[in-house]
Structure formats: C-alpha cells, structure tokens
Write a protein that binds this DNA or RNA. Structure first.
Lengths: 201, 201
DNA sequence: CGTAGAGTACACAGACCTGTTTACTTCGGA
DNA sequence: TCCGAAGTAAACAGGTCTGTGTACTCTACG
C-alpha cells in the first residue's frame, strides 16, 4: 500500500531524471544525450516519449506545478508555514532557486510555453495566499497576497545567490509585520513555547 | 564636455555588446562568435582582449556592479525611490530581471567567480539600505535592510515572469508598511488613494 | 621611410548539440 | 507460434560551441 507502483513508467523515469538534471545544472547545460545516458536508455527511446527537448522542458515544469492541497491548520499558520518550508529547503544542498524563475531566465526569451507555465504557477501561488487572506477577513487580500509572494520570491532569489537560509526567516518576520499591519493578531508568537491562545475579545 | 570620449575603446565596445546580448538573451544562449559578429570584429580580436568567455562573463558582471552614489534626498526618499526606479525599469521592454541572479541561475553551478560577484553585489545593496536605516535611526537596521532587499529581489523575479510593473508598486507599499512598523513617519503620503495616516499629532 | 601593433579573414580542432535513420533484439500475449 | 510494440546500438546530418593558428592588411608614429 505504501507503494502501489514499484515500477515507474519509462516516461516517468525520463521526467524524473530530466527534472533532477535540469533543475540542478540548468536547462541549457543539459542535453538530451546526458539525460538518456543517465537513465541508461537510448536517445531514440527518449524521443519516442517526447517529440522534442522543448516538450520535455514543458513537461518538466508542468510536473513541478503541483497545487497546494487543503490543510487543517489555521490560515495564518499556513501562510507563515510557507516560510518555514522555505527555510528547510534553503538548507538543502540541492536547492537551486525557483525552477520557474530559472527557466524563464534561461529560455523565457524564446520559449513562450515556459513563460506561460511560469506565469500560471506564480499566479496560483498568489491566489493561494489571497484565499487564505480572504478567509482571515482582512481588508485588501489581493494587495497583501502580492506582497507575500514578493517576500517568497525575494527570499528564494537571495538564497540562490547567498545560500543563506536566514533569508527565509527574514521573509517570515516581514510577513508577520505585514499581516500585523493588516490587523492580524498572532496567538502564537515566534518563540516555540506553547503559550495558550489569548481570547481575541 | 558632454562627451569627452567619443571614441570608446575596443575593450569597452566588446563589453557593451556582451552586456546587451548576455543580459537580453542569456549568457549560455550567446556565443563569442555572435558578440564578435555584432560588433563587426573577428573572433581573434575578441580573444586578444579577453582570454576566455568566462573572463568576459566576469567582466560583464563587474561592469554592471556600479555602486550607488550619494544623494541629496532624505534617507526615506532614497529608500522608497528604489521602488520607483524599479517600476520605471520594469516598464522597459529591455528589462529581463537581475543580471546577477540570472547569471547565478545559468552558470552559478560551475563558475565560482560569477557567484562571488553576485554575492558581493547583493551584499552591497543590503549595506546601502542598512546605512540609510542607521541614518534614520531605527532599531534593527540589519534586519530591516534584509527585508527590503527581499522586496526588491522579489519584485524583480515576479516582474521577470509576469512582466508587470505593478510588482514594484506592491513592493513599495510593503516597504512603507515595514518602515512604518519600525517607527518611520511619512511626511509625504503615497498616491491620491485615501490614506488613513492621521497627520502626526 | 619603415616598422610594430592592432585588427582581419578564414580555416581548423575537438567537442557538444538536437534530432533522424537503420538494423537488431527482446518479450508479452492473442 | 508469431506478431507487434518497445527498446537498443550506433551511426549520421547539420548545426553550434570555445578556442587556436596562420597569414594578410592597415595605420599611427618614430
């Protein structure tokens, strides 16, 4: 039950390998030869599953585009939890920035599909923030959601260059200030101590 | 006096062209052949001025690294003015994100010089913010400076993908909230939108 | 004048790139 | 058993890439 599919399909194996190499080394830095050789298949097989490298690039990004599912945590916890997740990912040696931003930087000038997927991803993330902010009931969820994604992408860009997970903590602190400025009360301040929620009235 | 050097040196012509092409099309997307052809010189001449493409890439980034000079405006005006400059640059069709972040995304994995220059640039920008915040006299200039660079880089990344200058305005608004949270008073409220800031008093 | 430096033209090496072609093997199931 | 799908190996086409080598020309300047 834990793994109903112990034998991944060939297409998935290609995608998994393309993802790893494209993300870690860069799209332009990796040729289809390298991907095929890494899996141990012939280039012909790869081209039987994807008609071109561009198609593989698009599939790579679409595979990275997984929507955020629902959560049982509170809206504020979910929002601030994003920055905790970021900090964890920044600490990994395999983190190399946002794959969508990187892809646009690398091939966005010529590959319109890449830009389209990247825009859709960024907007979906913004809407995720917005809906949570609506749930909280603040006055300008659209504007604040945009500001929050700026903090997310800013910390990603800074970490890509500096390799410093503290960028995520700084972003989280800024997010708290922005939320606070919008009237959000924090029952659970930064300290890990489990202090009980203060009644809000 | 307007132009004491009407005849730019060959090295500078190469750098100017490399800058334009590297930035607009991407470092990996442009070969030295293309640069030489664009100027109308032979590839041999280019290699007489730069020993390798990597050296040209480093020179390109170092040339982009121009420190911010002093200003007669107030510290707060300088800080918020950054986002106005960004908005203007976002509106240009030739804006393609931060050259340092893009360079790290493209070749940062293999070219250590590129990463080093990018880190130096990002840190210099952060220190520029920090020194202005010290001038203002707020309590945590280091932390707030980091948060401000997050907004800068976040708006750049978002604009790279979405091509939307409104990202700069959102960043500016967030910066105002962060500054306000640090105790900064604004004598010059933003746009004609109804601001709830009561005249201090 | 005459020479040295700077640039040009162009071929070349050796590698890599995307994508195709041909011929062969393997193997599950009708 | 035999067929067809899927994969393999290897070469190939036609590019591009970085970087070098060689021989020529132009021109500023002593």
């Amino acid at each position: 039950m834990a793994s109903p599919k112990p034998k991944p399909t060939m297409k998935e194996r290609i995608l998994e390998t393309a993802d790893r190499l494209f993300y870690l080394k860069g799209i332009r830095a990796i040729g289809v030869d390298t991907i095929a050789a890494e899996i141990g298949i012939s280039k012909r097989t790869l081209y039987n599953h994807f008609p071109s490298k561009d198609a593989l690039i698009s599939a790579y990004l679409e595979r990275r585009f997984v929507p955020r599912g629902p959560s049982d945590k509170s809206a504020v916890e979910q929002i601030l939890g994003v920055f905790d997740s970021l900090e964890r990912r920044f600490a990994s040696k395999d983190f190399r920035g946002c794959p969508f931003v990187n892809a646009v930087a690398e091939v966005g000038g010529e590959n319109k599909a890449v830009r389209k997927i990247a825009v859709a991803f960024k907007e979906s993330r913004r809407l995720w923030f917005r809906d949570l902010l609506i749930e909280i009931g603040i006055s300008d969820p659209e504007g604040l959601a945009t500001q929050l994604v700026l903090l997310v992408d800013g910390s990603i860009a800074q970490d890509l260059v500096r390799d410093d997970p503290a960028m995520a903590r700084a972003a989280k602190q800024a997010a708290r200030v922005l939320l606070s400025g919008a009237g959000v009360r924090f029952d659970d301040p930064p300290a890990p101590s489990q202090q009980k929620s203060r009644p809000k009235g």
